[in-house]
Design a protein around this nucleic acid. Structure first.
Lengths: 129, 129
DNA sequence: GAGCACTGCATGCACACTCATGGAACGCGC
DNA sequence: GCGCGTTCCATGAGTGTGCATGCAGTGCTC
């Protein structure tokens, strides 16, 4: 009996998460789409911007996997798209030539600064009741 | 200042939701995959099972859209898959021939009963700390 | 240095999703 | 009844994702 009660409570919590996730994700997508970005793109851009504020600072792809809620292959393709759009650059890591360094371009940094308030606004709209 | 603080708090909340969603979704998928179901499939199955416990009770596709976090087209295809697997049946609604009734088959009901505890267990593993 | 297991990233493939559209059925005004 | 806008579901096209795999580079053992 107690077990089923706990089960129902978990079920409700799960529904809440599902609902909040769907609404917010959709709202962010809608807010960022005019700028050519999706929610996942922004997540990576934001990670690069906050994790490597120094100019010369760079970030391994490996470091991004695990922090981002994306598979390694999806991340690889996403970075390829960002590079094609001129938002990031990839360069081989000299100390471990298997690795790849990813860094924001000036354009990428500028775009991030531009859309950050939009993302915050979307969050406020759907999460801050 | 207060605005940015609130922004950071929202950001953290969003990260938590993202993380919980990804972990739980993955865990449910993993638990249900051996039975040929994904998380979305279960969501629809569960909805049909709980919304129409009576034998003759049926549910319009229209009623499912909005309750499920899926687009109308995705739901249509998902139901087609479930029907192909013999878990649900579709029949035209006699009182509004645009509509379609969806109902669980015995096999669908049995499968739902079989995997429900697995889903609950997955929820408990990832949400109930 | 040769062999070998392992790591890091890219890619082929299958599949589910969204968006936009299509077609059938309804309901309303006339 | 006829036309017209709307609703309901299905489907075609394009895109993104995960899984499995490929391939180059690393480091360890000998």
């Amino acid at each position: 009996m107690a077990a089923t009660t706990a089960g129902v409570r978990l079920e409700e919590r799960w529904r809440d998460i599902l609902s909040a996730h769907a609404r917010t994700m959709c709202e962010i997508d809608r807010a960022l789409h005019p700028h050519g970005l999706g929610a996942s793109d922004f997540e990576v851009l934001d990670m690069l911007a906050t994790a490597a504020p120094e100019e010369g600072e760079q970030c391994r792809v490996q470091n991004l996997v695990g922090r981002v809620h994306l598979s390694q292959s999806a991340l690889s393709r996403l970075i390829a798209r960002l590079e094609k759009d001129g938002l990031v650059t990839r360069s081989v890591c000299v100390e471990d030539r298997r690795g790849v360094w990813v860094s924001l371009t000036d354009k990428g940094r500028a775009l991030h600064a531009e859309v950050l308030p939009l993302q915050r606004a979307a969050l406020a709209r759907t999460l801050g009741e």
